[in-house]
Nucleic acid binder design. Structure first.
Lengths: 340, 340
DNA sequence: TTGTACGCGTTATCAC
DNA sequence: GTGATAACGCGTACAA
């Protein structure tokens, strides 16, 4: 492939002049500039970004770590990020981690070798992650997304998970529910799930109700009915379920319906994330909406700010409760006929 | 950041030896090797991939072009690709194009400047795309995904869109439907939609039925009911709809239900893609399933094969009809009461 | 306005 | 085993 030297030669100028014709055309005589560009076209010259990056010590590339793209929350965030990044002249190097801390570490290491200008990441658990403490010692700016770190020392873009789940719980309480439980994936792997659980607990305790332990599923996005069933029967049986994400909620609803439970008449279900598809379901999914596209765009702009030297800041974006049909008023509390 | 020279100096060896300690440790005396690695650790040296890439003329990066990550088909494919690529030591540079041909061209140009080793792309319309003819003249190997090119000269991973939609149409015919229509996004932007339409036409004509013109929506993934309504009323009104993708199908179903149509009793609906969420809906989405994860993995392996010098090949993967509840038997053909 | 010369951090090819 | 040294392709201070 033709390089700048070839172009310069063909245009009858030095490499320096040819280089300037691209980067600072105003410093080059118009006619010379045209000759260079013409020569470049003829040789189908393509500037080598690797060389530029090596030379300028800047890649204009952002490394992105995402747990799982099959979850629309992350896909939608990534979509928004890519658009925002490209608008600013940045490209995205994307990897998935599967909520696996060791893969997170490996991938970050690779990205640092590649000299990305910055990092946007969603880690499994921000509260005890060696990856983050390691990163903090490097000079690469980074931003957490969805993670809600305990400290303010790191940049992050998130909603207030505690308050968000508090809101959702309040909604159920307002509908008359008292026996409310929370379903989540592997809690040890998710700082967010823990915070959301705290929000649930707080709302319950404010009403002098007993918060139940988390009903923990082996998968983040798929319910296991056998683990759920015991919580639903008997006089203490739950009449409403909060789920730690929408995919899990949809899976729960599907499972419930398959066993003959009616949603919301027998059991109300609320999700978390507010993925677009939730609206199309019947019953439509009641959910805590995170502004995923805005979160993505904000993540990019916060990262660029950090690159520009600004101090880290936690950006807390507003959530919203989408009152879907999957959460309804409590039906005749203890006498309702349930099909077990 | 420390470079190899610094490491070499600290270890008391030359740059060459230090380099060998990493790439060919067997050529270096054990003790020397250890000294180098020790020095590297002390200086927290990180090999510079940019320099490696520039020097070796190979980036081990794959450029990926995707229309829209909000569509789970693409997100699921990307997820699979990323895993497969990383297994082989490749990283992914990801961009979205929004079905916009000019953005496709720009993005490809950028990726070529970045010297990606190969390209995986889903273009809006493979049949008349200047991007592809331009690419064919470059030396970068590339693979189309989901696109089904007319020629065999380019590498592609896809299902047989024609046959797939033929199958779906047959399913509706077997259920007794005769007045069947097809709904799609902007057809001019989608080679796949056209092929699928051909499959529909063929199945209809084999039964001596009249294939209707495509009902074309302004968006790829969202229905516009006013454009749909006229096709549903009257004695010639459609009793079944084939949709060019699942998101569109879900949107159609949602619109229908909101207007009082029952699915599938009044109108049967079939989608295309087979996204996972379709299963959770009620009624569950009947759909032509594309093996998205396999497609993603295959795309990577086909691309690597091309990089290894193999000839381009179109890999046609099997589709599958998922018989969901959204497509049911025809109900009392022309006397059924419809709420317009 | 244009040219010269060096550096970016590697890998690879020689010699010793 | 190890050490010089030349690429790789470009940016840019400095000189002309």
């Amino acid at each position: 492939m033709a390089d700048l030297a070839a172009v310069a030669k063909r245009a009858g100028v030095s490499r320096a002049t040819a280089a300037r014709a691209f980067s600072q055309p105003e410093l080059v005589r118009q006619s010379t500039c045209e000759r260079v560009l013409e020569a470049a076209r003829e040789l189908s010259f393509r500037p080598n970004r690797l060389a530029q990056q090596l030379r300028t010590q800047a890649t204009r590339m952002i490394g992105v770590l995402i747990p799982d793209l099959r979850n629309p929350v992350f896909a939608e965030q990534l979509q928004a990020m890519e658009v925002a990044a490209r608008e600013q002249g940045y490209a995205l190097l994307v990897t998935t981690t599967g909520y696996d801390a060791s893969r997170e570490a490996d991938v970050i290491e690779e990205m640092l070798c590649q000299r990305v200008d910055g990092l946007v990441l969603t880690v499994a658990d921000a509260e005890n992650s060696e990856v983050l403490v390691k990163l903090a010692q490097e000079s690469v700016p980074f931003v957490l997304v969805y993670n809600q770190p305990a400290t303010d020392e790191v940049a992050a873009v998130t909603v207030d998970n505690r308050w968000a789940m508090y809101d959702a719980t309040q909604h159920l309480l307002a509908l008359g529910h008292r026996q409310i439980g929370m379903v989540a994936g592997p809690v040890a792997q998710s700082d967010r799930a823990r915070l959301r659980y705290e929000g649930y607990c707080q709302a319950m305790e404010e009403q002098a109700l007993t918060a139940r332990p988390v009903i923990e599923m082996p998968q983040h996005t798929q319910a296991s009915f056998p683990l759920l069933a015991p919580q639903l029967s008997g006089p203490e049986g739950l009449t409403a379920l909060l789920c730690s994400n929408d995919l899990l909620a949809l899976s729960v609803i599907s499972d419930l319906q398959r066993r003959g439970y009616r949603v919301p008449d027998d059991v109300s279900v609320i999700g978390f994330d507010g993925i677009e598809l939730g609206d199309l379901f019947y019953p439509s999914l009641c959910s805590v909406v995170q502004p995923r596209a805005i979160i993505g765009r904000t993540a990019v702009s916060v990262l660029l700010a950090r690159m520009g030297g600004e101090q880290p800041a936690v950006k807390r974006l507003p959530h919203q409760l989408r009152k879907g049909e999957s959460a309804g008023p409590l039906q005749r509390p203890s006498t309702v006929a349930r099909r077990p």
